[in-house]
């Protein structure tokens, strides 16, 4: 097999005295969609935050393209080619759609290329184009999710971390968002997808990991996981 794009070994994270991750291992190969599923509070968001260096790892390694991310700052992780779409979208409500997108390209210096990418995002997401001067806070939930994804793409990532993109969205919008995710993957972006909606996630991923109370308990091909009795019972209802 090829070398992994992302290789997490024995990662532990604490919030004060609370241990959120108890030494997890996750590998993501180039071009894959890998999903991380688990109940509320299992540590899914913490895993993504540790990768993007928003929270510190207590111990363990996070290797990306052969570099250890735990030695980098958050902005260096973005420069290394990783973009994080946080849980709850977190668009900057009082800033315009265009300013949100420009901020996605904050770590880049190539002005002309940034402008080009901005127009590219508006081509890809016409609904954002119509609202480019509007404040992001006035967008609907689905539009905000599109903006959050487009903003992340503005850094030209090769690995995209998506935290619960379906959260709080109507089923028809969720379908649209997942179509965007599949399209992105087909253009070569590697994706680590966190979801509470296990069924949806496993339908759209190559492989999956199940996280329970800070530990990985089950892992395998997405199809196999979808058929696994334990997964079915706990997450597929």
């Amino acid at each position: 097999m090829t070398t992994p794009a992302l290789d997490i070994q024995n990662l532990t994270v604490y919030y004060g005295a609370i241990q959120a991750l108890q030494g997890i291992n996750i590998t993501v190969y180039p071009g894959e969609v890998v999903t991380l599923i688990g109940a509320n509070g299992a540590g899914k968001s913490t895993t993504l935050r540790a990768i993007s260096r928003i929270v510190k790892a207590r111990s363990g390694q996070i290797r990306y393209d052969g570099r250890d991310l735990t030695a980098l700052r958050a902005d260096e992780v973005v420069r290394a080619g990783i973009a994080h779409v946080p849980e709850g979208r977190r668009v900057l409500a009082r800033l315009s759609v265009a300013d949100n997108l420009f901020l996605g390209a904050y770590t880049r210096n190539d002005r002309a290329e940034i402008q080009h990418d901005l127009e590219e995002m508006f081509r890809r997401f016409p609904r954002l184009a119509e609202r480019r001067a509007q404040l992001a806070g006035t967008l609907s939930g689905g539009e905000q999710q599109m903006l959050a994804i487009a903003r992340a793409l503005m850094s030209r990532p090769r690995l995209l971390l998506l935290d619960e993109p379906s959260l709080g969205l109507a089923p028809i919008i969720v379908r649209e968002i997942f179509e965007i995710i599949r399209n992105l993957n087909s253009t070569g972006v590697t994706i680590l997808l966190v979801e509470q909606n296990a069924q949806l996630a496993l339908q759209n991923a190559h492989r999956g990991y199940v996280l329970e109370a800070g530990s990985i308990t089950i892992t395998g091909e997405a199809k196999a996981l979808a058929g696994d009795e334990r997964v079915k019972k706990a997450y597929l209802g």
């Binding site: 928003i54 958050a74 902005d75 973005v78 420069r79 973009a83 900057l92 800033l95 420009f102 901020l103």
Partner: peptide, 23 residues
């Protein structure tokens, strides 16, 4: 300016700003 946008991002949402690479 670009710096001003980074300032505004921090004022709005520090976590989101950090995720975008704003120090």
């Amino acid at each position: 300016s670009r710096v001003g946008r980074a300032f505004a991002a921090l004022r709005e949402d520090e976590l989101a700003a950090t995720a975008m690479g704003v120090n």
